[in-house]
Amino acid sequence: MSYFTEENSEAAVINRLGDDVDPRFRQIMESAVKHLHGFVKEVEPTMDEWFQAIQFLTATGKMCDDKRQEWILASDTLGVSMLVDAINHRRPDGATENTVLGPFHVSGAPVRALGENICLDGKGAPCVVSGTVTDENGAPIAGAKVDVWQTNDEGFYDVQQPGVQPDMNMRGLFTTDESGHYHYTTVKPLPYSIPTDGPVGELLVAMGRHAMRPAHIHYIVSAPGYETLVTHIFPKGDPYLDSDAVFGVKESLIVDFVDEGGSTSARFDVKLKKVG
């Protein structure tokens, strides 16, 4: 029997894993323990500093409910969400790139007809977004589901302003036609701050970072036989493209929003990767 010491701390914990533990779970826990203990040995936190870390974890959990996920926000702002996403969505050249889901997706978005307006509060400059969903070779995909959502013109998602915004404001689920085409009406997106009223906001301040996201529209595009795509589109020229608080920008997702005189238009074509 080997008792716990500073020198053998990793081994002491890992050796407690049972013999019948799932192999993948064992791999994950062994690595987690090694990295966590290595981190502690590298920075040598004081007892007060470690208690501050515990308080951060506790406060982050307390901020989570069915409308807000502070842990996703923490993962996003530390770049972990984008790294996990990149590892799990390595796509061939030509297929549309993924980016982070974000903490404000809501299932059950209202089914809308092509061209319908997702802006229910009447605020903001009108914008028409259109495009075609195809496979990697450019063959159109009819019946693809295009789930879109964004903030309103004041920079808030509907779930952040219950009772202020209409339910399901700035959300819609569209289906591509026989030629794989989709289009909908919305408002031109604007940059906004991620929530800073919780522990993640305090962490960003401590790190000397801003909390701004470049303007964007969220997408989930799915079709039978194809990998589901989770992504954004970003207007070209946005001042926060190079410093997105959640590291979500990819060059291929930057899109021209064309001034149409009182309104704007944008085109975003999607190429899905076949499963297998």
Rank of each mutant, 00 (worst) to 15 (best):
I194G: 00
K41Y: 05
K123M: 11
A142Y: 07
E42P: 00
N152C: 14
D167R: 15
L78R: 04
C127S: 09
G201W: 03
G172H: 00
N15D: 09
A211C: 10
V21N: 05
A95K: 07
I141E: 02
S81V: 04
K274M: 04
R16H: 08
D269G: 04
G198A: 07
I220D: 02
K236V: 12
Y226P: 04
L272W: 00
K123N: 11
N8Y: 03
Y192L: 09
N15G: 06
G102H: 01
Y184T: 00
F174V: 06
I217F: 06
V80E: 07
V43G: 04
T99M: 01
H218N: 13
H218Y: 08
S75G: 14
V249D: 00
G102R: 01
R68A: 11
S9W: 06
S179H: 13
T132I: 13
R112C: 12
W50F: 09
I28Q: 13
T185R: 15
D22R: 06
I254C: 06
T176H: 02
E178I: 11
A223E: 00
A206K: 12
S179M: 12
L17E: 07
T264S: 12
G108M: 14
D242L: 03
L36A: 08
L36P: 00
V80Y: 12
P224H: 10
T60N: 15
P189W: 01
A245F: 02
Q161L: 14
K271S: 08
F56Q: 08
M168N: 15
D238R: 04
K145V: 14
N15M: 03
T186S: 11
V21D: 04
T264G: 03
L253D: 01
T58H: 13
R267A: 05
V133I: 10
K67D: 15
H181V: 11
S107W: 13
S263F: 04
V148T: 04
A86D: 12
K250A: 03
G172D: 00
H181G: 05
T96E: 09
V159T: 15
V40P: 00
I141Q: 01
M29T: 12
G237F: 03
K273G: 03
V221C: 06
E97K: 13
A266E: 02
S222I: 09
D167Y: 14
R90S: 13
Y192W: 14
E154W: 06
D158F: 15
A53K: 05
A59F: 05
A142L: 12
R24V: 10
A74G: 09
S252L: 06
Y192M: 07
H216R: 13
V33D: 02
W71P: 04
R171W: 04
S179L: 10
P126T: 08
V13A: 06
G61L: 13
I118A: 01
K273D: 07
P189K: 01
Y157P: 08
V21R: 08
G198Y: 01
F104S: 02
G143N: 15
V270S: 05
L190T: 15
P140A: 06
P214E: 02
Q165T: 08
Q52L: 11
D197C: 02
R267Q: 10
S9P: 00
V129Q: 01
M29H: 12
F257I: 04
M63I: 04
A53E: 11
M47E: 12
V275P: 05
Q55A: 11
F4Q: 08
C127H: 01
E136G: 12
R24D: 12
F56C: 10
